[in-house]
Design a protein around this nucleic acid. Structure first.
Length: 828
RNA sequence: GCCCCCGUAGCCCAACUGGCAGAGGCAGCCCCCUUAAAAGGGGUGGAGUGCCGGUUCGAAUCCGGUCGGGGGCACCA
């Protein structure tokens, strides 16, 4: 006896992969239609679904599988629902690891990079992600980074890019400066070494100019972006309301401006503090205090960021030998230099009000400075308790402002300062300008030439792209010098302006520049007349869905929002926010521990794929919980996913050709209820619950085949086909295979999302719960459209209700037809 | 220190605007098939929602407090 060979008799998740990859490729299933045309010849509305692009650090890992399983489910759902979907892929392929790998192996960084890209592309393909591959690009391609340079020059022309000397975060191991966002707890995000402060001349983008708009425009994102991300951005921007106050300094022509959130406490300022590492401290220091100050400053500069950030360390500082004059009281107060005041926040100087600010109080107590209460808060005396009185209260010891409440006094002092020309109400932000220079090789060269006579000169647009040198450079970091500096032939150029000998800027751009606009280029990655094609951007953007990790909350997402606003102001895009909706997927962890390169990958994606197949891995990821939750691989069961997919596969083979007619009504009702449910859940991105509904549908159909109306009932076929169509969002290979086993020669990808017959959702009877004092005492089968009166009578007639009432009278009956009646007994 | 989110069966998770606490999975238990064992198929028990209080006819859901967990910002004036 031999089995017929046309259909295999067991589900093999691996054997079905190639077959459908070829079928999809041949059909061009995932190509967006009309990338640039605003005409919509097929009438399908466009929908742009973007996942954060991939960094080619090696092969794909579990985290990639998580993100792209989610975005692919969105994309496939949208396609089934009749949208023209653009689901693009690209690579964020500049960056440090390529260089590190390169000098470890003595290779060109591009070799490692493009090898990894090739490997990832093939892994993506085999995972069955429905990308439109024609959109593909890599940020390390000169055709792409050319436009980084173009944008840089555009921002430069509009005073949004500038160079200045600034204290910067310097990583001694990676030998480069780091953005604020790349410093975690005083350590380099990448290598973990202690970050040092260095004073270097660096390029910046003026993100701070957009601080208020970045805050205001969050109104557009409310409810569409995760709350958590919006909160993180708000914290990061750090808006702070208060006043600028100008203090005259004895022996200095110009007053010194400070910022305070508590101008109401101005009369309580008993000393003045300047950041020890600010130029101002150096300037204000008198000769007879010079030696003491220099010693102190040396000590401050030697301390690491870690030491600086310990908030419980004692306050230190030195008197500078000078006095400042309180602009309202005229009081003369001493000026100190201390390291608890930060040079780069506000103006780098403060008025110190020890009675009402904890830090100032700590310093005053350490230095024996006076503490004067100016707001009566009812708290114990700060000078004795050591606890500043930060509460609300009424002003005292404050001249004309005595008796005002704290809030009124904030306004009144601000107004008075303005009248006197000594200050005004103002707002400051924590958000700083974006430091984008990197002393690294594998990045976009900055298109500026430094000429001894002309200064900064732009590389002419027709010379772009300014390519990286291909030889003559030394990759290894050498004491803070950029690798590009060693490429002498590349660096030495004639000045485009005067023709004299000049030198190229040798820094490269932060890779976050690359990723802050890539989503604009996908619709036309070959566009040559600008960074992005206006027609494509008009057609697809802003992106309908953006999916990626929340670790990018204050970095990439903020930069992308900033750049979009800048481009809007320059008239290049017609919107101010790039991503309409945002989904931030959780991490894949193992037994409570994050997986990372340093800790070793506890679970390897390729192993999982080899064991369970791409569909089961995808289903496992999505079924584990809500997309934004972490997936603990120790809590989930890829075996269970394989089991379910096998059940669907087997069912698809068991369903026979249908008899005529609509089929079993009870089965149809269950099927349509589940389709309806799954549809709503899918629209709300409740992917884990959708899968639960599909599992339920699988069981319904299994029972219908085995012990219900049977395999040839039309309702069973209808249900099986609906199941397989919905399944194609999550397990595309299995779904195609099952669709074919159901007798179709077309692709399930083109079959559409099942329609719900709403007539089938109507129930003939429904269960009404009858409560007494909120506790369920009886259930009644009633018509769904039963009138309230009738239902009330029915409920009151119930013997179980009477029993529960125990003879007590009825004080009230709440009727919520048709589902619920609550009988409230009389008290007593 | 300031701010945000979350606590539901042994575990992961459901429960539409307050209205029957359980959809799904894992593990467990029972049965069937087969077996050297397993895989496979079918079935099944199990929590009153961290804790205290409030609002309400009715609270997992709203409010206040508290405990526990996770996260963001942080000498930011």
């Amino acid at each position: 006896m031999s089995q017929p060979t046309s259909q295999p008799d067991s589900y093999d998740p691996h054997a079905i992969v190639d077959k459908w990859l070829i079928a999809w490729a041949e059909r061009g299933s995932f190509a967006a239609n009309g990338l640039l045309s605003d005409e919509r010849p097929d009438g399908r509305p466009p929908r742009y679904i973007v996942s954060m692009f991939s960094y080619p650090s090696g092969d794909l890992h579990m985290g990639h599988a998580e993100v792209y399983s989610i975005s692919d489910a969105f994309a496939r759902f949208s396609r089934l629902r009749g949208h023209n979907v653009l689901n693009p892929i690209g690579w964020d392929s500049f960056g440090l690891p390529a260089e590190n790998a390169a000098f470890k192996r003595n290779l060109d960084p591009s070799v490692w990079t493009y090898d990894n890209i090739a490997m990832q592309a093939e892994s993506f393909r085999r995972l069955g992600v429905s990308f439109d591959w024609s959109t593909r690009f890599h940020t390390s391609d000169p055709e792409y980074y050319r436009w980084n340079q173009w944008l840089f020059l555009k921002l430069y022309d509009n005073d949004l890019a500038y160079r200045k000397a600034a204290p910067v975060n310097w990583c001694p191991v990676d030998q480069t400066v780091l953005a604020n966002e790349q410093v975690i707890q005083g350590k380099c995000e990448r290598c973990g070494s202690d970050v040092e402060q260095r004073n270097l001349t660096q390029w910046f983008f003026r993100t701070s100019r957009y601080a208020q708009r970045l805050l205001d425009d969050m109104a557009q994102l409310e409810g569409k972006w995760p709350n958590e991300i919006l909160t993180m951005q708000r914290n990061w921007i750090g808006r702070s309301e208060g006043a600028h106050i100008d203090f005259e300094i004895e022996g200095r022509a110009e007053p010194v401006r400070v910022f305070s959130t508590r101008p109401d406490t101005l009369f309580g300022a008993t000393f003045f503090v300047v950041a020890a590492d600010a130029d101002l401290a150096d300037e204000l220091c008198t000769d007879d205090r010079r030696e003491e100050f220099e010693t102190y400053r040396k000590q401050v500069r030697a301390s690491t960021d870690i030491e600086r950030m310990a908030t419980d360390r004692p306050k230190t500082g030195v008197f500078l030998g000078r006095y400042a004059i309180n602009p309202l009281s005229g009081e003369r107060i001493p000026v100190y230099a201390a390291d608890y005041v930060l040079a780069h926040y506000g103006t780098g100087a403060i008025m110190a009000v020890p009675a009402h600010d904890q830090r100032d109080l700590d310093f005053a107590r350490a230095q024996g400075l006076p503490v004067r209460i100016v707001v009566d808060t009812g708290e114990p005396a700060p000078a004795e308790t050591g606890v500043a009185a930060a509460g609300d209260g009424v002003l005292v010891n404050s001249g004309e402002f005595d008796g005002l409440s704290k809030d009124d006094a904030i306004t009144a002092t601000s107004v008075r300062l303005r009248e006197l020309g000594h200050g005004e109400a103002t707002v400051t932000y924590r958000l700083r300008d974006w430091l984008l220079s990197r002393q690294r090789f594998w990045g976009t060269p900055i298109p500026i030439i430094h000429c001894p006579s002309c200064g900064e000169v732009k590389v002419p647009l027709e010379d772009l792209p300014l390519r990286l040198p291909t030889s003559g450079y030394e990759l290894r970091p050498r004491g803070g010098k950029s690798p590009l500096e060693s490429a002498e032939d590349w660096v030495a150029v004639p000045c485009p302006s005067c023709g004299g000998a000049a030198r190229r800027d040798t820094d490269t751009m932060d890779t976050f520049v690359d990723s802050s606009w890539y989503f604009l280029r996908y619709p036309n990655p070959d566009y040559e007349d600008g960074p992005f094609d206006p027609a494509g951007v008009k057609r697809w953007l802003p992106a309908d869905e953006y999916i990626g990790g929340k670790e990018h909350a204050t970095g990439h997402l903020m930069y992308s929002r900033f750049l979009t606003k800048a481009l809007y102001d320059l008239g290049m895009v017609g919107f101010t926010e790039p991503f309409t909706k945002l989904t931030c997927q959780g991490q894949v962890i193992m037994a409570g521990k994050a997986m990372s390169k340093s800790l070793g990958n506890l679970v390897n994606l390729q192993d999982q794929l080899a064991q369970f197949g791409p569909d089961a891995v995808r289903v496992t990821m999505l079924f584990a919980g809500p997309p934004e939750d972490d997936v603990d691989w120790a809590d989930v069961s890829p075996t269970g996913s394989v089991k379910w997919l096998t059940r669907v596969w087997r069912l698809s083979g068991d369903v026979a050709a249908s008899r005529d007619g609509a089929g079993d009504q009870a089965v149809r009702k269950q099927v349509h209820r589940l389709i309806d449910d799954a549809t709503t859940l899918m629209e709300n991105k409740r992917l884990n619950v959708v899968i639960a509904r599909l599992m339920e549908l699988t069981s319904v159909l299994r029972k219908a085949v085995d012990s219900g109306p049977g395999a040839s009932d039309p309702a069973v076929r209808e249900g099986a086909e609906a199941l397989v169509r919905m399944l194609s969002c999550f397990a595309p290979f299995t779904a195609e295979e099952a669709w074919s086993r159901l007798g179709h020669t077309s692709l399930v990808d083109e079959a559409g999302w099942p329609e719900v017959d709403s007539a089938l959702l109507v129930q003939e009877t429904t269960t009404c719960v009858v409560q007494v004092s909120g506790k369920v005492r009886d259930r009644l089968e009633v018509a769904p459209d039963i009138p309230e009166d009738e239902l009330r009578e029915l409920a009151l007639a119930s013997g179980k209700v009477a029993a529960a009432l125990q003879g007590a009278g009825v004080s009230k009956v709440i009727v919520r037809a048709p589902g619920l009646v609550n009988v409230v007994p009389m008290k007593g």
